[in-house]
Computed example of a mutant assay.
Amino acid sequence: MAYELTGKIKLIQEPQTFNSGFTKREMVVTVDDGRYPQEINLEFVQDKIALLDDLQPGQEVTVSFDIRGREYNGRYFNNLQGWKVVPAAAAAGGYPGDEAPPPNMDPGPAADYGDDDIPF
């Protein structure tokens, strides 16, 4: 099941590669939640770590993620695993400087075709 959150990037960690060849990179996003903002840690794994390359702390983003859970030695752990990051400007309909949408192509008042509704 996919989830989504929007917030400001607080921190982007360097990638970590383990002996098994597994690679992950973590990002912390601050989400406004009333009086107490929440700092949410999300991890990106394998080929998804490249999604963080062009992002900077302080940037507003919307992150799509899955919740992953596992048991280890009788204890249970959860991870938020990101798979998509969209800068807030793009999520709002485009980056600043993008062309405006084409004007409405309304032809104006209908031409007079007599009593017949069909123009041919």
Rank of each mutant, 00 (worst) to 15 (best):
Q13P: 01
T62E: 13
P37V: 08
Q13N: 08
E26S: 09
P37W: 07
F65E: 04
G82K: 10
D33C: 09
Y113H: 15
R68W: 07
M105N: 13
T30M: 14
V61T: 01
V45T: 13
P15S: 05
N19S: 11
Q59V: 02
E26V: 04
F44Q: 00
Y76D: 05
P103R: 12
A91F: 06
Y36G: 06
A111E: 14
P37G: 06
T62K: 15
P107W: 12
P57L: 10
M105R: 13
N79C: 06
K48A: 12
A88M: 11
A88V: 07
N79M: 10
P96M: 08
D66V: 13
I49K: 01
G69V: 05
G97N: 02
S20V: 08
F65G: 00
T17R: 10
Y72V: 08
T23Y: 01
V28G: 06
R35W: 06
P109D: 13
Y95F: 15
L42Q: 01
S64D: 10
V63R: 04
F44E: 03
E71A: 09
P119A: 04
G7C: 03
E26G: 11
V61L: 00
L80F: 14
N73H: 12
M105H: 07
F65W: 07
K8I: 13
Y76A: 12
Y113C: 08
Q81M: 11
P87W: 00
N19T: 07
D47G: 10
F18S: 06
D112A: 11
Y36N: 14
Y113F: 15
Q13Y: 04
M105C: 04
S20N: 15
V29T: 03
K48T: 09
Q46H: 04
D106S: 13
D66I: 09
P107T: 07
G93P: 00
V28A: 10
E60D: 13
R70V: 03
A89N: 10
L51Q: 07
F77G: 05
G114I: 01
V29P: 02
P102W: 05
G97K: 05
L51Y: 00
Q56M: 10
L52Y: 03
R25M: 01
Q81V: 15
T17M: 08
D53S: 15
V61S: 02
P109T: 11
M1P: 07
D117F: 11
G21V: 10
D53M: 02
I67L: 15
I49P: 00
I9A: 01
P102I: 09
D66R: 15
A89R: 06
G108K: 06
N41P: 05
S64H: 09
A89C: 03
F120W: 14
Q56D: 11
E43N: 07
Q16A: 09
